[in-house]
């Protein structure tokens, strides 16, 4: 084996590595990589603004509040406007507290398949838990690391009846926007401004 051959081989190897790195930075991202990226986040807090566009309403219904996440099983959605409501999903248990309605209900995920699947779409995406996502949805990932998008189509009949699709988009390890298209024709867009740790 001559040194010229070795240099040629190393050059090819280096080029291949470079190409891979470039692809990872600029090119496509697959579900596994994205999930690994998202799973690296321990806690996250965010403000959210949700807008429902509905044919039943004279103008879009806007609500806002905070989201907080703690890896891997706890997510709290605290709505402040138009009224106070706290929804906690912790280790598969869903608790809804609404001071205005004066009600507090608790249920396990399996009892409320529709609501759980929706809350799970945020929780499992945030936790990078592909297996959990796939339990409820057909999952398709597109875009690049810097700007990705996950398309979820419900498979659980409890949800498919109401929801046509969910699109979660973000950049890096951040989730920026969730759009839900409902079977009724309504559309809900949630803009999220995340702070990660």
């Amino acid at each position: 084996m001559t040194s010229g051959q070795r240099t040629g081989f190393e050059a090819v190897l280096a080029a291949a590595c470079l190409a891979l790195a470039a692809a990872a930075l600029a090119g496509g991202i697959d579900a596994k990589e994205l999930m690994a990226l998202l799973a690296g986040v321990e806690t996250a807090t965010a403000r959210f603004v949700e807008t429902r566009h509905s044919a039943l309403l004279r103008e879009p219904l806007v609500s806002s509040g905070t989201l907080s996440y703690q890896r891997p099983n706890r997510i709290v959605r605290h709505t402040e406007m138009p009224q106070e409501e706290r929804i906690v999903l912790d280790k598969g248990r869903l608790t809804i507290e609404n001071r205005t309605l004066g009600s507090a209900t608790a249920a396990s995920l399996s009892k409320t398949p529709g609501v759980s699947a929706l809350v799970e779409s945020i929780r499992a995406t945030r936790a990078g838990d592909l297996a959990a996502l796939e339990r409820y949805y057909e999952v398709r990932v597109s875009g690049a690391r810097a700007k990705w998008r996950i398309d979820l189509v419900p498979r659980a009949p409890g949800l498919a009846q109401y929801v046509d699709s969910v699109a979660v988009s973000g950049n890096g390890a951040r989730i920026a926007r969730i759009e839900v298209r409902e079977a009724s024709g309504d559309r809900t867009v949630t803009e999220i401004d995340e702070e990660l740790r």
Binding site: S54, L61, N98, S184, D186
Partner: peptide, 10 residues
């Protein structure tokens, strides 16, 4: 305005 909105809406 809650996560159950989609279910209620229909």
């Amino acid at each position: 305005a809650s996560p159950a909105g989609a279910l209620v809406r229909q």
